[in-house]
Design a protein around this nucleic acid. Sequence first.
RNA 1: GCCCCCGUCGUCUAGCCAGGUUAGGACACCGCCCUUUCAAGGCGGCGGCAUGGGUUCAAGUCCCGUCGGGGGCGCCA
Length: 472
Amino acid sequence: MVRVRFAPSPTGYLHVGGARTALFNWLFARKMGGKFVLRIEDTDLERSSQEMSFEILQALRWLRLEWDEGPIYQSRRLVIYRRMAERLVREGKAYYCYCTKEEIEERRRASGKKVWKYDRRCLHLSQEEKERFEREGRPRAVRFLVPPGVTEYQDLILGRVSVKNDEIEDFVLLKSDGYPTYHLSVVVDDHLMKITHVIRGADHIANTPKQILLYRAFGWEPPLFAHLPLILGKDRKKLSKRHGETSVLAFRERGIVSLAMVNFLAQLSWSPGEDKDFYTMEELAERFSLEKVRKSNPIFDLDKLAWLNSKVISALSAGDIWPELLPFLEREGIKEESEAKKDWVFRVIELIKERSRDLLEMARKIKRYIRNDFDYSEDALRKHWKEGAKDGLRRLRQVYAGLDSLDAASAEASLRALAEEMGVKAARLIHPLRVALLGERVSPPIFHVVEVLGKEEVLLRIDRALRELPDV
RNA sequence: GCCCCCGUCGUCUAGCCAGGUUAGGACACCGCCCUUUCAAGGCGGCGGCAUGGGUUCAAGUCCCGUCGGGGGCGCCA
């Protein structure tokens, strides 16, 4: 049984890199019929916060990456890590280190080297020295005794990775305050939670040999490892705050739909190798495989995300869009009205979705359909409110008022007939009508707009334009 | 500095593992078509195997060097 996990540390919001890691784990679990475990690595009490844990869960829910087990908080498992560290000390695979940060810094400086490995001073302490330190009540950390040799593993994405053990220093397992370091807690938990595949960012490559050594020291079988290429910013540096918004929830705020975000993330470093723009979550899971993950670092490109978003919005039904749209309707102050005439708003959504890049824009457009007190855009007036506009609109109003029913077909036929009668091109009537109905330079095909607004509302809006817009 | 990883259009990528294609698609950009506007759609254009060597009848694909990029080197995770 495949078991994978996503193990964020709640020291910040969920950024796009973390979200992609979570997504790939989720996809792999779904593909393999396995389990996806969520574990919160909050052992750094200084930097972790409850709010951030909550934020991360929110983000995962938005992306629909539901977890099968958890969230498991490491901060509640401290006794386990301590016991495990003690076990290694007892077995001579780890040792107490009484060096203070200052002493280490001092020796590092004295060595004159930029990089300095721990010198194992405390490994060679005499019995008397140890006893003295203990009597003095000096705080002690537990360091792992790195054995000689070479550590190799077969990365599911990168292939064989090999590191000489003498490149690795005796890293700390248990800090002197009794909290575990990442290496200890991650290995203990992954083993206890029976994780079979560790899928994480490439920034962990160098940690892997250390952790494998730990598995061996405990006598445990290590899981398989897969390291995902790091997502880079436009400057080709690891994506961070300096590249603008990288929090996934910030994209939700900007009107990106969840499915677009997922598809965008999924297709960074991975490709199903088909000519298809986007997939449902299920389709992604079906097609996913670690072998198809590329090794090189992709660059985060907002253009592609924006395009994908408009594609997804166009493809989704009004009903699918609705739940994600609600917060934006609320922002525009039209949530209640929209809910009251939901079916009608659905018709509007179907009309405008193909031209909406994001939900922000969509909500703004919907407002013009719901409310007829909009401002006429300067742009629209300049472009379409020209000579004869008012006169044409006046005559069009008469025609429309005389019609029994005003649907797209009759609206178009009667407008074209009127244009012919007046000896002008239909566009001379169409554009002023567009300005009158929505106050914007561009819109969906105007006769569809007429139909969805309905006769009464159309006449109302024409009257308003005749009343308020300047004579030309 | 040391260690590890990577290198196909500006960007995301297919092709590489099992050498033989005019190196394919998508985004962006630029034209044209369609058209009541804007999108969408259709057609076309621009643009790439980092580089040097080797193996081979044949190299984007295999090997080595160089260059370039990234990551790591914490009592952070």
